Amino acid sequence: MSAASSDVPRIGLVLGDPSGIGPEVCAKLLASGAWRSHVRLHVVGDPRVLAQAAQQTGVALPDDVPVDGAVPFDPSSIRQGVASAAAGRVAGEWLKRAVKLAVAGELEGVCYAPLNKSALNLGGWHYPDDLNLFAAITAYAGPQGTIGELNVQPHPHGDLWTSRVTSHVPLKDVARHVTQEAVQDAIHLIHSAVRRSGVAQPRIAIAALNPHAGDGGLCGDEEATVIAPAIERARATGVTCDGPFAADTIFLRARRPDGVQNYEAVVSMYHDQGQIATKLLGFSRGVTALAGLPVVLTTPAHGTAHDIAGKGLADPGALEQAVRLAARLARQTIVPSEPVSDAAVL
């Protein structure tokens, strides 16, 4: 049955790196049934990996959830808690399989358990981050500024979204990558994504680059010469955005301590400027969404946690939120029908 034939979207749940906690959080989520009211899940990964995770976590897996084992993997072939080429290779293959199902119309989105960049690289997936990996898998050929990694913190008063102008760039190189075009791209990307999540007119706060927002030019001039003009240009297109605000207070502006939300989104200038704040707001609930690609893609904002892998201790809370977000985004997404070429990567 086609995923589009139901009001409840069908989401692919990819087991992630089998050496980490991904299979365990998947097993716990499946057993909890917390997802049943808003999504139909379709597991992508070897059923032996999932069965091992269920045993380690002490849960009983439901018997009505399909498991796509088209890419086999024997969990006894690796050591849990250790990054390896074998684990990285199969994690990438499972992702590729899930994306193929999505573009074929069998799934309306994909939620994947944590990956390990070192293992992916050892396994032959030579990309700096998830975004570039999926751009290759989907054969994305559009402008770089129209795709990006967004972070989402679920909250009863409204989700708080975060994007960044630069991502996996050394800190010493950040300033030269903060251009008016790059700031505008980040603003428009998050504006579009938050609108698609159901917010008609998102309010966006833009961070400064320098301490104290540059102190009027005493501590850098990027706020006046780069960021402020980009904000004005975004406003001219109908985007509601303010700033630049000092980075040490911008999240307090966005969401007050009493929970009142003044902004639905924050644009940071570099990775840790936004990531530290969002993870402090709720490490076990944070979600990453990859925006602008032809497939809905979400994942927990945490990593593979090799130190506790195989011990049954992993918290599935962030994965549950990632599934919820994928379902919400999928309801407003048309899945493309063009197949992904086997030659798209590697």
Results as ranks from 00 to 15, higher is better:
Leu329Phe: 10
Pro229Tyr: 02
His155Gly: 02
Ala139Arg: 13
Pro62Cys: 12
Val323Trp: 00
Pro202Ile: 15
Asn151Ser: 13
Leu160Ala: 02
Asp17Cys: 09
Val152Asp: 00
Leu329Arg: 06
Ala230Lys: 07
Ala175Glu: 00
Ala53Met: 12
Asp68Ala: 04
Gly20Ser: 03
Ser37Gly: 15
His188Glu: 00
Ala119Leu: 06
Arg164Met: 14
Ala193His: 15
Gly92Trp: 10
Ala322Thr: 10
Gly317Thr: 05
Ala119Lys: 07
Gly148Asp: 00
Ala327His: 01
Pro336Glu: 03
Val340Lys: 06
Gly310Thr: 11
Ile137Leu: 09
Ala54Arg: 07
Ala277Lys: 03
Val335Gln: 06
Gln52Cys: 08
Arg97His: 04
Ala87Gly: 11
Ser118Leu: 11
Gly145Pro: 01
Asn151Val: 14
His302Cys: 07
Pro72Tyr: 03
Tyr263Met: 01
Thr304Pro: 00
Trp161His: 06
Arg255Lys: 13
Gln201Pro: 03
Gly312Val: 14
Gly16Ser: 06
Glu338Val: 15
Ala119Gly: 08
Ala228Gly: 07
Gln55Met: 07
Ile190Phe: 03
Val99Met: 06
Ile147Val: 08
His188Asp: 02
Thr278Val: 13
Glu338Tyr: 14
Leu15Ile: 07
Pro114Trp: 09
Phe73Met: 08
Gly158Arg: 12
Gly22Ala: 07
Leu13Ser: 14
Thr225Cys: 09
His42Ile: 08
Asp221Asn: 11
Leu325Gln: 05
Arg195Phe: 04
Glu149Gly: 10
Ile78Ala: 06
Ala60Glu: 12
Ala102Pro: 00
Ser337Asn: 14
Asp17Ile: 09
Leu122Val: 10
Arg79Leu: 06
Met269Phe: 00
Val103Ile: 10
Ala86Arg: 15
Asp185Gly: 08
Ala102Met: 12
Ala301His: 07
Leu313Pro: 10
Phe283Trp: 13
Val165Cys: 01
Leu293Lys: 09
Gly58Cys: 05
Ala86Glu: 13
Ala213Ile: 11
Ala265Tyr: 05
Arg40Gln: 03
Leu313Thr: 06
Asn132Gln: 14
Gly286Lys: 10
Ser19Lys: 07
Pro66Ala: 02
